[in-house]
Simulated scan of single mutants.
Amino acid sequence: MKTNYEKEIEQAKKAALEVLLHNAHGPFHGLPRTAGWGYPEPYTRDQMISILGIAVSNNQELIKSIRNVLETLARNQTEHGHIPSLVHDKDDRGASDTTPLFLLAAGIFRKVSGEADFLAEAVEKALVWMSYQSPSDRFLVAQLPTSDWRDEQWVIGYGLYVNTLVYSYLRILGEHESAEKMRHAMSRFTVTGGTMHQHVHEGLVVKHKPYYAFWSYKIFSSERFDLLGNSLAILSGIASPKRADEMISWIEEECAGMHERGELTGALPPNFFPFIKPEDPDWHERYSKYNNPGDYHNGGIWPFICGFYIAALVAAKRYKLAAEKLEALTQCSKLSASGNQHFGFNEWIKAQNGKPLGQDWQTWSASMYLYAAKCVEEKRTPFFDEIRNK
């Protein structure tokens, strides 16, 4: 007989699949919607991330849909290899994470379909584009502010999240020599003391901390914690097993402290902390409208990122904690901004009070729930096991 916990997970998985099937056909050339109602457009990064849950669902309608997305992106790729931010709009350009996500998703789809040369020409063009994104020509790629998924938050230079994507696609596409050089570059310390000596190259390791820096560039860096980037560092194997275990313990301890200070409710970690506050030097005036402490990119709880964290816990063999977080994510997935859904799969949750403030039936929230559940059930991380073990 199934426990109540198991029954709730089965109900949530069924609801997540319903969301993905509902969103599979939208008003723009029949491409998938980003959310059930609020975002009818097919945003590239959301669709590429959703491939993880779609792939483990084995639902042929969804797999056919994601094939269409990838093939449409290949047709709308720029002359130089860049992938647009909207699947259907070749002129919507400028994102730093769409091309890496396309390459990772193409690698995953090759595993799912068995087509080893799927979109070979587009993949090669995208690899060339990415090879020119390193200002120092030394493996780490750089970005402009608000160009990745954090469109309301500044990441300058070598951002952790984008570089973990680059490492992951290099591994899944078999570019192991380049991947190893990149991992070595990321393992350098960030530059401190305000002086950058000749032949010293910045990295993303933070002194006396188990996690990786939010971003780094020359003598500047941010040591705030990025849950998505660090979860990908664990999943992909950039972080050693020892570092991964220490990082997870640190995350849980920091979250306990935020609970005590009234900055966090519930059992799920925020996407980013410590929160940027108006008195901090990295505060921007626009944040007061869109990105207040504990909101949106500035410390909101994002279910899709919690899905990556749960997968990272499985990768680190923290199975009990992963099961506990999956139970918390199951309860979180019920939250609905409209109040009309039994399972809202909302976009993001306010850290301090647990209120859903994003769009309901968000594609990547539903997809990453399915992926996290699969990881916990099977004690493995599909696709990333292979990446990590290379």
Rank of each mutant, 00 (worst) to 15 (best):
F345P: 00
L31A: 00
A311D: 06
P27V: 08
L103N: 04
R183I: 05
E18G: 08
K317L: 00
L62H: 14
G53R: 01
L228G: 05
V206Q: 05
K277W: 07
G266Q: 01
L370D: 06
M182E: 13
V206R: 12
H29C: 07
F304M: 11
G30H: 07
H197M: 14
C375I: 03
R183K: 15
V56C: 12
M196K: 13
N346V: 05
S131K: 09
I305H: 04
G36H: 11
G159H: 10
L335M: 10
R171S: 08
I238F: 15
L104T: 01
P270I: 06
G53W: 02
N292A: 12
E180T: 15
N271W: 00
R171M: 12
R150Q: 14
N340I: 05
M368L: 14
F343M: 07
A323V: 06
T192E: 08
A126S: 10
D91Q: 15
H284G: 06
A105S: 08
I248M: 05
S134V: 02
E10Y: 02
W302S: 06
Y296N: 05
P210N: 05
K317S: 03
R150M: 13
A322P: 02
K125G: 01
S85G: 13
W302Y: 03
R45F: 09
E124R: 11
N353I: 11
S231D: 08
S336N: 02
A315C: 04
E177W: 14
A120Q: 14
T195H: 13
W348T: 02
I301K: 03
A239P: 00
T72S: 07
A15L: 04
L103S: 01
A105Q: 03
H284L: 14
E18D: 11
